[in-house]
């Protein structure tokens, strides 16, 4: 425990300072006097972009010990000038919400409940199923004999918060696998 020097005793401070009514400087606690913003000890601050609507507001993301501690508007952005709407302002909660599910879950046919599943195993199972569906629904030609070289066995529907680089890989991979039923929120 830190020792309070006699000079910091409230009554002494009240007399020492001009805060005669004891409602200002004289009554401040050590904690108050040492107040600093909780972002001050962040170990990284990166420039980011809000993930909600398409205005594309700039965000500053503060992190400490590999955990996001705060997100606020980036004043440098010529689009948003440091401002965020309620959704953008809530995006720290998007990262840290208790509602987030961070582990893989698996539901077997006819099962009433989820069960846990190893991530590596899950990707293996998905790869196997994808190849099976691809083969089973493969089409070499259409009804007129025109080449189609495709599979109708699986489809995808993406949201519109998927990065350009991610969409690029999805389209590239699925097209190479012969899939054509690749869709996005942009259709909706």
């Amino acid at each position: 425990m830190t020792r309070i020097t006699p000079l910091e005793w409230p009554v002494i401070r009240q007399l020492r300072t001009r805060d005669s009514s004891g409602r200002g400087a004289a009554v401040t606690s050590k904690k108050t006097r040492e107040t600093s913003p909780r972002t001050s000890d962040a170990d990284t601050v990166v420039q980011s972009i809000c993930p909600y609507c398409a205005v594309g507001c700039g965000q500053k993301v503060y992190a400490k010990d590999n955990r996001v501690v705060h997100i606020e508007g980036d004043p440098d952005s010529p689009i948003s000038r440091g401002r965020l709407c309620p959704k953008g302002a809530a995006s720290e909660q998007l990262v840290n919400s208790a509602g987030r599910q961070t582990k893989v879950l698996y539901r077997a046919p006819r099962s009433r409940e989820w069960e846990s599943l190893d991530l590596d195993r899950a990707i293996d199972m998905i790869a196997d199923r994808l190849l099976t569906a691809r083969r089973k629904h493969w089409e070499d030609t259409d009804q007129h004999g025109n080449p189609v070289r495709r599979t109708m066995g699986f489809a995808s529907l993406g949201g519109a918060t998927i990065d350009n680089e991610e969409n690029y890989l999805i389209k590239k991979l699925f097209s190479a696998a012969g899939a054509v039923q690749i869709e996005n929120q942009a259709r909706i």
């Binding site: 001009r18 805060d19 005669s20 009514s21 409602r23 200002g24 400087a25 004289a26």
Partner: peptide
């Protein structure tokens, strides 16, 4: 409270 004096106290 005398806000003027409160301010000066700082």
């Amino acid at each position: 409270e005398d806000t003027q004096r409160s301010a000066e106290a700082y």
